[in-house]
Write a protein that binds this DNA or RNA. Structure first.
Lengths: 234, 234
DNA sequence: CGACTCTTTGATCCTGATCAACACCGGTGG
DNA sequence: CCACCGGTGTTGATCAGGATCAAAGAGTCG
């Protein structure tokens, strides 16, 4: 299926230097930028800027734009779009857009899903930190490697398996940030999920319905509750 | 589909140092090891060993074995198998198994398709050549990069498109070695082709039949003649 | 020649796309 | 407050591509 081009405007984004990145941030305990407040990485907090608010469909980065920063989602939700498909989803607390060590320009869009604030880590500043702080340099290398691996995702398996796999993946990732819980937020549209998984919106709905009928999940307006984790992986 | 594990024995391979790698080799004009006899690369000939004969199903390299050489097919045909699937086919004259710069061990099998002889380029010797001959070093880097790109193949498109694409690819590659011609050898089984393309043997046969019916190809016992190249690409 | 394997071909089934109808929900305007 | 409206999600009906199963050629090797 083809993914419709995004009709969106450039965001009117404020930037507030280091307004909020401290222990009182709701993600402080697990934010990937500081690996949950690891003291060796706390210098990352000195370079962060809060940017937003972004509305549904606003682009945080655009293809061709120079690569000048990495980001985390502070509040809200985001997706990476490229080649006419959704390539990734980003949960609050997750660091992304490290890509492009090669080309120095973005080749994808990062788009807000609903009202969203981001934390921006300027590349110049983080590189400087990495020069004097080997822990930060290593942490960034690790995240960059992970981002590259994630981008080569599978695409095989049945539609049901792919939907269940996405839910399991989002649940695991959300727990890594938010702690134990059963809820998986799905603020993105069914079309986004279908684009990401390579199937139609109707099939996404149907597979979710089948998981509900098998009592693996309960469907809510804003996401799903995972009732039987084992059933998702099988 | 799953690809059956290979039941094969280790080959009883002879090694003859530099017995045949010279201008009289039938692939000398295009062999990728010397880029068709490029004089700057002729030192490659001094390190080659001829190995064989290998019979149908014999393995040239096995997963886990140390990576000690690259190879070309001298006569016959070969396939690379890994993860239970056929990952690549190798025509006479093509250099392969440069992989594994990372792990220093093979993670795939290379299997002979029919009676096959290989030319073996020991890694130690080619590395030594690369130290003193920048042309050879660059050539090896180029081939290694290409091998890495090829390994990330598409997998999308309809069954007909994938079959036609394979034929077009093999035709292009054969012409690069053997010169102009319409013939594409298919010594591998339909199961191998299906495994490579991700479809059943029945579908491979049916797609070939459709290309025959549309007069794009003529099917022979040992391969196909391409009658309408444009039809393959469309 | 006979046994065996591979290929071809036909028949049927299953998955997921596509199309269409409808429900639902948040706005917007009366 | 309610009628209207467009977008999104759900559900049903139909369709197409390929998988699977089965049976019939076609080599191939003993």
């Amino acid at each position: 299926m083809s993914y419709a081009p995004l009709a969106c405007v450039s965001p009117v984004a404020q930037r507030r230097p280091n307004a909020c990145c401290n222990a009182s941030c709701r993600h402080a305990s697990a934010c990937e930028a500081t690996r949950g407040g690891d003291e060796r990485l706390l210098d990352m907090r000195s370079v962060v800027e809060r940017v937003g608010p972004f509305s549904e469909g606003d682009r945080l980065v655009q293809p061709g734009a120079p690569h000048r920063a990495a980001f985390t989602v502070l509040t809200g939700f985001a997706k990476t779009v490229g080649d006419g498909r959704v390539l990734a989803f980003h949960l609050p607390g997750e660091l992304f857009a490290l890509d492009i060590a090669r080309s120095h320009t973005h080749d994808v869009s990062v788009v807000a899903v609903g009202k969203t604030w981001f934390c921006r880590f300027p590349k110049d500043a983080t590189d400087d930190l990495g020069d004097t702080n080997t822990d930060i340099a290593q942490h960034l290398r690790h995240l960059r490697r992970r981002e590259r691996q994630v981008s080569s995702r599978s695409g095989d398996g049945s539609a049901l398996q792919r939907v269940a796999g996405l839910l399991a993946d989002l649940l695991r990732r959300r727990r890594a940030i938010e702690g134990p819980g059963q809820f998986v937020p799905l603020p993105m549209s069914r079309e986004d999920i279908g684009s990401y998984l390579g199937m139609s919106t109707a099939t996404v709905t149907r597979m979710l319905a089948r998981l509900r009928d098998s009592e693996a999940i309960a469907i809510r307006a804003d996401g799903v509750d995972v009732l039987n984790e084992g059933a998702l992986l099988a």
